[in-house]
Design a protein around this nucleic acid. Structure first.
Length: 288
DNA sequence: AATGGACGTGCGGTAGATCT
DNA sequence: AGATCTACCGCACGTCCATT
């Protein structure tokens, strides 16, 4: 898909890109070879397009994702996924609440399609920065508004990777209502983690701090599930985006591999947390 | 409840096309 | 060549929304 992309060229927006495609120019190679380009555009613009495409070919060969990250409009970053999948990592964090700096990161999961790595406050959280720097492409859900600003603020760094936020891709496809709603819409079942949300993760952390190690394991299982599911969401979003373009490009196969989650969900702990939450809610009700 | 980025809308500027 | 018209990129502003 990337080598059918033209909207990363300055002076080319959505309409111009569609005009190029509709003229039968589907790839960079087409554009470089086709005399059609000269009938569509002025001599100087055609020259500009060709020289930028020569550059693009070179940068793709060098696997320079930063180049495309800079030039692609944010809403089209999804096009990078197949070509840069090997440099991509899915990321999700859990915290003690929504407001840094009072709140802090409790757990982070990285998943690169093969390996899962978790980082836990008070244990190995410090290793996170070095690990994440091994990747040049970060994929999240709502990470633009939450995960990355939160991390950058608490670690006092700026993460230089190209960052794709699936929230807006899904929204553009007509799916909204959060990660769980998107998962349900595309048929992902969370099993024993059904009904668990970010606030549950906050309560699980508190319970862990009160001396319950099973609460931490359940929290990690939740964090990992969120992260691993991002890959299926990404593949779905990519394919759906490609389907809606006026040119036929190969789709990605659904990830079929079974991901072994190294943590167990302790359902009795979840029940306790749900029950406590219910009690808190009803107590609030009495006040009113 | 706070955060902060994306998106839609509308506007201005510019390049190219068309006409005389 | 000059005047006018058209297309559309890119920016600013206000609104929306998902995260723990």
């Amino acid at each position: 898909m990337l080598s059918s992309t033209f909207c990363h060229i300055p002076q080319v927006g959505e309409r111009t890109e569609w005009r190029i495609w509709e003229a039968g120019i589907w790839t960079w190679e087409d554009a470089l070879a086709s005399p059609l380009l000269d009938t569509l555009f002025s001599r100087s613009l055609a020259f500009h397009l060709r020289s930028f495409l020569e550059r693009s070919l070179l940068r793709l060969e060098e696997e320079d994702i930063a180049f495309f990250g800079e030039h692609l409009p944010g809403r089209e970053l999804w096009r990078l996924f197949p070509e840069f999948r090997h440099q991509a990592v899915f990321l999700d964090i859990e915290t003690t609440g929504l407001n840094p700096p009072e709140d802090y990161v409790t757990a982070i999961t990285l998943f690169d399609g093969y390996r899962i790595k978790t980082f836990i406050h008070g244990m190995n959280l410090r290793d996170f920065l070095e690990e994440v720097m091994a990747y040049r492409f970060i994929i999240t859900f709502n990470g633009k508004c939450f995960d990355l600003p939160f991390l950058e603020r608490s670690l006092r760094v700026r993460l230089p990777q190209v960052h794709l936020d699936l929230r807006y891709v899904m929204k553009s496809l007509g799916f909204s209502g959060g990660l769980k709603a998107c998962e349900r819409a595309i048929g992902i079942d969370r099993g024993p983690l059904r009904g668990v949300d970010g606030y549950t993760a906050v309560l699980l952390w508190r319970k862990y701090q009160d001396g319950c190690p099973e609460a931490l394991e359940t929290l990690l299982a939740y964090n990992v599930a969120d992260t691993v599911n991002l890959e299926r969401l990404m593949v779905f979003a990519y394919n759906e985006k490609v389907r809606r373009l006026p040119l036929s490009r190969p789709l990605l196969p659904e990830p079929r591999k079974r991901i072994l989650i190294p943590y167990r969900v302790h359902e009795e702990i979840l029940d306790e947390v749900f029950f406590e939450r219910l009690r808190m809610l009803s107590r609030k009700g009495e006040v009113w």
